[in-house]
């Protein structure tokens, strides 16, 4: 930031051609990133009469909340919303528990066995058993169709763990030594000293995990068989991509999507799925940048 400020002063910019072209290009890119979401919102709010007249519907002229009303009165969305929340909340809790333990343990680099532990763990970043052996493991653990399969599959993200560990490593060891001299026990040091000052990194990593769980679609799709357990993303994919033909054949037709305002309903479901992300986005943006940077330096 400071370097920018200084450079700005150096080449104090009039409205040069360079600046105009540069800002126009960036503006177009930014618009292309955001407009699709606005377009989806537009469609979801489109009244039936307007839709039948035919589009393009670049901006909303008339607004109807009919699609949202139907989604919420039909209620099947609450079932998948509930699954998404269960997976996100419990998944993040398990992730944070395991990740914090692992990161704190591995921040003790002088510990005997440290080299073995860290090499064993980092190796899994570059070499995995793959889909089928993991699936077979879950099956022999009798976890198929259980939320636990979805939660435990990514129990620790090694990348996130290393980001957290680098934060712990940066805490001056004098802090801990002083507490030990004062007679503090090791658990006391961890829970009353280290974790409280690590709140920012804990918040960041929980956000990473939570967003990952909320957006996950492949893992729940393969491990959960019962329709009622499917999170929003799995249902949404079905709504968006299974053609009406194949749904009829499969006999799994989602009653709601037969409605004359089917397209609006689809897009309203997309919006409902995006809303939680938009709510936490300001925090995400703030912390994510930091997380990416720590990760990039250390990993």
């Amino acid at each position: 930031m400071t370097s920018n400020y200084k450079r700005g002063k150096l080449s104090r910019g009039r409205l040069s051609l360079f600046n105009i072209i540069n800002c126009t290009m960036l503006f177009i890119f930014a618009l292309s990133a955001i407009y699709p979401f606005m377009y989806i919102l537009t469609i979801s709010l489109l009244p039936l009469e307007d839709y039948l007249k035919g589009g393009p519907f670049l901006f909303p002229k008339n607004v109807s909340f009919e699609a949202y009303k139907q989604i919420f009165t039909n209620g099947s969305i609450f079932v998948s919303f509930r699954s998404s929340v269960i997976i996100t909340v419990f998944g993040t809790a398990v992730n944070m528990f395991l990740t914090t333990l692992c990161a704190y343990g591995l921040s003790k680099t002088k510990l005997k066995g440290y080299k073995i532990f860290i090499n064993m763990i980092v190796f899994t970043m570059y070499f995995q058993g793959g889909l089928i052996p993991s699936y077979m493991l879950m099956r022999s653990l009798k976890l198929i169709d259980s939320y636990w399969a979805v939660i435990l599959t990514g129990g620790i993200s090694t990348y996130n763990m290393l980001v957290m560990r680098s934060f712990f490593l940066n805490i001056p060891s004098s802090l801990e030594e002083a507490a030990i001299i004062d007679g503090a026990t090791e658990p006391y040091v961890l829970f009353k000293i280290i974790l409280p000052i690590s709140l920012p990194v804990l918040a960041t990593i929980s956000l990473f995990y939570a967003v990952g769980h909320w957006n996950a679609y492949f893992t729940p799709m393969i491990y959960l068989n019962t329709r009622k357990k499917w999170p929003l993303q799995v249902i949404l994919r079905e709504i968006l991509f299974e053609t009406t033909e194949s749904m009829r054949i499969a006999g799994e037709t989602n009653e709601l999507m037969k409605s004359p305002i089917g397209p609006q309903l689809k897009m309203a479901t997309v919006i409902v799925t995006v809303i939680p992300i938009s709510i936490v986005y300001p925090f995400l943006q703030k912390y994510f940048v930091k997380g990416v940077l720590i990760g990039a330096i250390k990993a």
């Binding site: 064993m120 763990i121 995995q128 077979m136 493991l137 620790i156």
Partner: peptide, 27 residues
């Protein structure tokens, strides 16, 4: 003497053994 740290590492290491190394063995 370092039992607390080793204790802390038990669950994460178990996690890696069960959910990463068993699938690698499953190859």
């Amino acid at each position: 003497k370092n039992r607390f740290i080793y204790l802390i590492l038990v669950l994460p290491l178990l996690y890696y053994i069960i959910f990463h190394y068993i699938p690698i063995y499953g190859i």
